[in-house]
């Protein structure tokens, strides 16, 4: 099946991003995407990651042994024994964004349980980043909840919201407030399209809050599942007065996996900023010496 040719040594790399909702993988040969895959994350992230890696390899016509290095990222990275190194999704998104468009200065990513804003410098290094608080307002999970309450399929939220005819104020402070406001509106017979448009605006304002902390600098790149929602894209463009770049011809959810693959391809160089750095940093833990909190008291 696989090429198994020595000619691929040092040329094929893979990245795997195991997120809270979906697992993504990208395979690079000579810096070009030759395979990718996307699947829901199951109850065992370790298996989900391996399966999506296998799918991406199959799409590229490769086997695991053809790959010089695999980098894992996302929440599932902590249980990815099939990977060679792990890097956070923040760094992977930055790397992926710089790979796609070196002029990217700000990434907005709306994932399943996090939404994040990452500021980049001209070298593609992270200048600053901010993630949502514990509250899920502004994340994919929040949009899922809204679609359930409104009885609208997730993928229909965007197109439907573009038909709204009135602006409504919905709180972006807290998912619980927003939910209760939506239920109040439904109880009063408000139309779903107006409610959804208001929800998109609330999410956009939430993201604007994160952007405020990191700073607004073009070009913007919008990634994650949220970038597939046309209504949300429109709301963000309206709130930010800016246009976005998305990943050309690819699913915007792949950005983290792409960045992981790019980092894997650089992994042969042992310098700061490459996956090897984690080995340098890892030190045995120092035991708590005074153990103030751990000594039993007679």
């Amino acid at each position: 099946m696989g090429l198994h040719t020595p000619a691929l040594a040092g040329r094929a790399f893979a990245g795997v991003d195991v997120g809270s909702q979906s697992a993504k993988s990208v395979v690079l040969i000579d810096g070009r995407i030759t395979g990718h895959a996307l699947a829901p994350t199951g109850p065992k992230p370790e298996e989900s990651g391996y399966e999506v890696l296998t799918s991406a390899l199959a799409a590229a016509g490769l086997e695991r042994s053809d790959i010089t290095q695999v980098v894992a990222t996302g929440y599932g990275r902590v249980s990815a024994p099939w990977s060679d190194a792990t890097v956070t999704e923040i760094t992977c998104h930055a790397t992926g964004a710089h790979f796609i468009n070196p002029r990217t200065r700000t990434i907005i990513d709306i994932g399943g349980q996090d939404c994040k804003v990452i500021g980049l410098d001209e070298d593609g290094h992270i200048r600053d980043f901010a993630l949502n608080d514990k509250c899920a307002a502004g994340t994919g999970r929040f949009m899922e909840l809204m679609s359930r309450i409104l009885g609208v399929r997730l993928e229909d939220l965007g197109p439907l919201s573009l038909t709204a005819d009135e602006q409504i104020a919905i709180s972006s402070t807290c998912i619980v407030f927003a939910e209760s406001e939506v239920i109040s509106l439904l109880a009063r017979g408000e139309t779903p399209q107006n409610i959804i448009a208001a929800v998109h605006h609330a999410v956009a304002r939430r993201i604007a809050g994160l952007l405020h902390r990191v700073g607004l600098e073009q070009d913007f790149l919008f990634s994650g599942g949220g970038a597939k929602n046309t209504g949300l894209v429109a709301a963000l463009q309206q709130v930010l007065h800016a246009d976005f770049v998305t990943i050309p011809d690819r699913d915007p959810q792949l950005l983290g996996a792409l960045g992981a693959a790019v980092l894997a391809s650089r992994g042969t160089r042992a310098e700061r900023g490459t996956p090897q750095r984690s080995a340098r940093r890892r030190r045995p833990l120092q035991a708590s010496v005074v153990q103030l909190a751990k000594e039993p008291v007679a």
């Binding site: 902590v78 890097v87 999704e89 760094t91 993630l131």
Partner: peptide
């Protein structure tokens, strides 16, 4: 875990930038 990711990414940022 969310905080682990933030601190880890922060360390990566310090190392690279």
């Amino acid at each position: 875990e969310g905080i682990r990711t933030r601190i880890d990414a922060f360390l990566e940022m310090i190392e690279t930038a």
